[in-house]
Amino acid sequence: MTPNNPSELLYVFGSFTILLLVAGFYCLVVTRSFLRAVIAIELLIKAVTLFFIAVGYITGKPALTQALVITVIVVEVVVVVIAGGIAISVFRKNDSLDITLLNKLKG
C-alpha cells in the first residue's frame, strides 16, 4: 500500500471502523445470547485494532501502535476465555445462555 493521501486513508479506515462499531453495538444491545454478546465485544475490539493500525501507518509510527495492538490482543484473549468460563457456569445453573436469566443470580 502506498501512503498517497493521509486524509483519504484515515477517512476510509475510520468509516469502516465506524461501521464495525455500529454492528458491534447493535448486536450488544439487541442480542439475548451470552456468547453472541461476547462476539459483539470481539467486533468492537477488532474495530479499535483496525483504527490503531491505520493511524500508526498514517502517522509513521507503526512500532508504537503494534505494541499497543499486541496488548489489546492479550486483553481480548483473556476476556474471551473468562467469558467462556462464565458462559459454561451460567449454562450449568440456568440450562440456557439467555442473558435475561442472569437476573436470577445472587448479588
Partner: peptide, 19 residues
C-alpha cells in the same frame, strides 16, 4: 491481511494466530 498490508507484520501474526 489488512494489518500486514498496513506495515505491521508482528501484529498481523498475533491477530492471525491468536484471534
Amino acid at each position: 491481511i489488512l494489518i500486514f498490508r498496513l506495515g505491521s507484520p508482528l501484529a498481523a501474526v498475533f491477530e492471525l494466530s491468536v484471534c
